[in-house]
Design a protein around this nucleic acid. Structure first.
Lengths: 139, 139
DNA sequence: TCTTTGTTTAGACATAGTCTAAGCTAGGAT
DNA sequence: ATCCTAGCTTAGACTATGTCTAAACAAAGA
């Protein structure tokens, strides 16, 4: 049912009931939740679930490379279950709405060798910002 | 002396002694400090400076568009005084070292119209990640 | 069954940032 | 010069987000 659960199991990671609920909550949504939003929604299915377990589990899924941690606003991190599928993010400066978007090409190729300062560059993420249709009308 | 101060004054923004110290601390460094790091350094020149003033001042400079707020790690925001000069950031996944870098072209052009979801897209920032020379050796 | 290892829990703790109420300062009006 | 006002600064309380700890719990293997 949950593809994220399948991917997690491949790491020989024990799928406990708590972890399954958290993974399915993450994957079942099309917005990127904060840890507390995941806790709130997961608790509808498993009321005794603790905050510490949600934080632990999310951090472990990030460490396994199956979930991306997004930190755009400096307030709270958000979690993106599509770690395998290259995409970027478009954020509304008015209301904070976030969309996944796909750009043409690979940003790493746009960084010249003499701008790399000897780094081994492995990833690149683009954050687009603007105003969504609703917030353009409101302005 | 401080170009940032000049830019801020153009907004009819009162340059108090506190604000000058904060602006010069920001601009005088080549790394991007957190608010608390700025407080610590600014206090060497003005020991009675308060934390609230540093936070207020940084937020106002961001609102004026003269300083960029960077939120990459979800821990604490960092502040970049070069808001006028288009550049991106390269971060070491080992030690957190951050460098300003310049990519070829404008990332906004790489986002197709049908991926914009009706947004008016105004800005794009690329975050490159990898390992710096020191952390490659350590690995 | 017993043991071992890993998981979950509640709550204490830590960190980053905001808010509030009071006092202070600079500049304009008199 | 003195007063007034608006805006600035301050200390500390408060909030939000996340981590840590110690104990209880659960599952798998001997």
């Amino acid at each position: 049912m949950s593809d994220l659960v399948t991917r997690l199991r491949r790491h020989n990671w024990r799928i406990t009931p708590q972890r399954r609920v958290i993974a399915e909550t993450l994957e079942g949504s099309h917005v990127h939740f904060t840890a507390d939003e995941i806790l709130e929604r997961a608790c509808e299915r498993m009321p005794e679930l603790s905050r510490a377990t949600v934080y632990n589990t999310l951090n472990e899924m990030v460490a396994l490379g199956e979930v991306l941690e997004l930190a755009f606003d400096g307030r709270s991190k958000r979690y993106d279950p599509n770690a395998d599928h290259a995409h970027h993010h478009l954020i509304c400066e008015g209301c904070g709405l976030m969309k996944d978007v796909h750009a043409v090409g690979d940003p790493i190729e746009w960084l010249p060798g003499d701008e790399r300062h000897g780094f081994a560059v492995t990833r690149a993420a683009i954050t687009y910002r603007g105003r969504c249709p609703d917030c353009q009308d409101a302005a």
